[in-house]
Simulated scan of single mutants.
Amino acid sequence: MGLQQDLMIKIKEAMKAKDAVALESLRAIKSEILLEQTKGGASSELTKEEEIKLLQKLVKQRKDSAIIYKDQGRDDLAAPELAQVEVIAKFLPEQMNEDDLKKVIAEIMKKVGATSMKDMGKVMGMASKQLAGKADGKAISTAVKQLLG
């Protein structure tokens, strides 16, 4: 089942359950998908990779907003953002834990021959492609810096 079909089922479930947070999150995903599809002029199906990137973008936006709200002492606004992150993250593939992430990055470093921070760009390029959807860019970057530094 594609993301859009799954999304429609979840929207109906959220409506029946009167779950406002889930409904708002799911509608945001649907809206973003529609915007992405019509961006090129013709409506076309998104690839799995494009769907994952889109979902990761939505999660990152909400996490960033929550951080800003917390920094300003507005926990009342940060809580709904974090709740939406949980709903949206359910559509993403399982995220890698830190140990597995470091193992994969170490293998990539061996392939590329990376030994110093100068090689970070090469490692990040390959790691971002290989780990798309399995880990977010910030976690990949942190792991690469730890292993190269």
Rank of each mutant, 00 (worst) to 15 (best):
E24D: 15
K134C: 03
R74A: 12
P80M: 09
I108L: 14
Q72Y: 05
V59I: 07
A83Y: 03
D99N: 11
M1R: 13
I140W: 01
E45K: 09
Q84R: 13
G113K: 07
A79K: 11
V123L: 09
I52G: 03
A22P: 02
I52S: 02
G113V: 05
K90S: 15
A114P: 00
M1D: 15
V112H: 14
L54F: 01
I88R: 00
M124Q: 12
K103R: 13
K118V: 13
S44Q: 12
E50P: 01
K134Q: 12
K70H: 04
M8S: 13
I9C: 04
G133T: 06
L131C: 08
K90E: 15
L77N: 05
Q130N: 09
K57S: 08
K48P: 02
S116N: 14
A79Y: 07
G149N: 07
E94M: 06
L58C: 09
A28H: 09
S43Y: 11
K39C: 09
L46A: 08
A114N: 05
E86V: 07
K12P: 00
K129E: 14
L55H: 03
L55M: 06
M117Y: 06
S31T: 13
D99P: 00
G137Y: 00
G73I: 02
F91I: 03
E13Y: 05
I88T: 04
G73V: 01
I29R: 07
L3C: 09
A78Q: 04
E49G: 04
K122H: 11
S31M: 14
P93Y: 13
A42H: 11
S25A: 15
S43Q: 15
F91H: 04
